[in-house]
C-alpha cells in the first residue's frame, strides 16, 4: 500500500513539474509581450500621439524629456526596414532556391559534402561579422562602382541581410523539397519529362508551401536584425530616393538611441513603440507561417 502511495506521489510529482515548466514557457512569452505593450503604448497614452502619426508621419523629433510635445513620426524607419528586408529577400531567394535544388536534385553528393557544411558555417557566423565585412568591403565597393561619396546605402544593407538570411531560406527549402513524394518524381520521369521540367513543373510547385515558410522565416530574420544593418545603413533621417541612398531603419534606431534617452521620456517611449511594432510584425510573420503550413498540410 505504502509502495503504491509512493509510486503515485512520484507520478504526480513528475507530471506536475513538467506541466508547470510547460506553463512557464507561456508565461515568459506573455510577459515579454505584455511588457512591450506596457512600455510601447506610453507614446500614445502618456504623450497623446496618434497611432496614425507614428505610422505615417515622417517627422521624427521626439523630445528627450518628460514634457513631450515632439514629433514621433516613424515612417522613415518603417519604410527603411521594409525596403531593406524585401531587397534582401529579392537577392537571397533565387540563390537559396538554386542551392536547395542543387543539394537535393542536381548533385546530392556534392551538396552533402560541400554545401551543407558551408551553410552550417554560414549560419554560425555572428551577424556582426557580416556587418563589418559589409562595412570594410561592400560599402567602399558600392561607393567606387556607383561613384558615390559614401557607399552607405539601402543596397549595402540589403546585401548584408541577404547573406544572413540565405542559410535560413536554403535549409528550410531543402527540407521542403526532400519531403516531396518520390512517387511524383518517378511518375513525372515515366511521362517523359526532362529533369528540369520535373523540377520546375512538379517538384517546386509541390514544395511551395515549405519554401514560402522559409522565405517568411528569412524575412522575419531580416526584419529583426539590428547591429549588422546599423553598420552599413548610413543612419540618415530621410526617405531613400533610390536603393543607393542612405536611410535608417527601426532596429538600427532602437539599438543606437535606446541607451542615450531618458527612461520614460517621450524619445524613450517612442523607441519602445518602435520595438512594439517590431514585435507585432514578427508575430504577424509567425501567423502567416502557420497559415501557410496548415494550407500545405491540407493539400497533402
Amino acid at each position: 500500500m505504502i509502495y503504491l502511495i509512493e509510486k503515485f506521489k512520484k507520478e504526480y510529482l513528475g507530471r506536475s513539474i513538467v506541466t508547470v515548466l510547460g506553463i512557464v514557457i507561456i508565461l515568459v512569452t506573455l510577459s515579454i509581450t505584455g511588457f512591450l505593450f506596457y512600455k510601447g503604448l506610453g507614446t500614445f497614452v502618456t504623450y497623446n500621439h496618434s497611432v496614425w502619426e507614428f505610422l505615417f508621419s515622417s517627422e521624427w523629433k521626439p523630445a528627450d524629456n518628460f514634457d513631450g510635445g515632439g514629433k514621433v513620426g516613424a515612417a522613415i524607419f518603417i519604410v527603411g526596414s521594409l525596403l531593406i528586408s524585401f531587397l534582401a529577400l529579392l537577392i537571397a531567394t533565387p540563390f537559396s532556391i538554386a542551392s536547395a535544388v542543387f543539394m537535393t536534385e542536381i548533385s546530392p553528393k556534392l551538396g552533402k559534402k560541400l554545401l551543407q557544411p558551408a551553410i552550417g558555417i554560414f549560419v554560425g557566423i555572428p551577424s556582426v561579422v557580416y556587418g563589418w565585412v559589409g562595412l570594410t568591403v561592400l560599402v567602399p565597393a558600392i561607393a567606387h562602382v556607383f561613384n558615390l561619396p559614401y557607399g552607405f546605402s539601402v543596397l549595402a544593407g540589403g546585401i548584408v541581410l541577404a547573406l544572413m538570411i540565405f542559410p535560413t531560406i536554403t535549409s528550410v527549402s531543402v527540407d521542403a523539397i526532400e519531403n516531396v513524394d518520390n512517387g511524383y518524381k518517378e511518375a513525372s520521369y515515366a511521362l517523359g519529362t526532362t529533369r528540369w521540367q520535373y523540377i520546375y513543373k512538379v517538384m517546386l510547385p509541390s514544395a511551395t508551401s515549405g519554401i514560402l515558410t522559409g522565405v517568411i522565416l528569412g524575412l522575419a530574420r531580416a526584419f529583426g536584425e539590428a547591429l549588422a544593418v546599423a553598420m552599413v545603413i548610413g543612419k540618415m533621417l530621410t526617405f531613400p530616393d533610390n536603393i543607393l541612398s542612405a536611410t535608417n531603419n527601426m532596429t538600427a534606431e532602437i539599438a543606437s538611441d535606446m541607451g542615450n534617452s531618458a527612461q520614460g521620456g517621450e524619445f524613450n517611449d517612442a523607441l519602445w513603440s518602435m520595438a512594439l511594432l517590431l514585435l507585432i510584425i514578427s508575430f504577424i510573420f509567425i501567423l502567416i507561417m502557420r497559415i501557410i503550413a496548415k494550407k500545405g498540410e491540407e493539400v497533402k
Binding site: 514557457i25 506573455l30 512591450l36 529583426g224 532596429t251 519602445w272 514578427s282
Partner: peptide, 28 residues
C-alpha cells in the same frame, strides 16, 4: 488547447528578434 498554446508560445519566442529580447532583458 493548452498544448497548442504552448507550441504557439514557443514558436513566437523563436520568431522574436533578438534586439527585442535585449530590450526586454535590459528593462526587466
Amino acid at each position: 488547447r493548452l498544448v497548442n498554446i504552448i507550441r504557439f508560445a514557443a514558436e513566437c519566442l523563436a520568431g522574436i528578434p533578438s534586439i527585442i529580447f535585449g530590450l526586454f532583458g535590459m528593462a526587466f
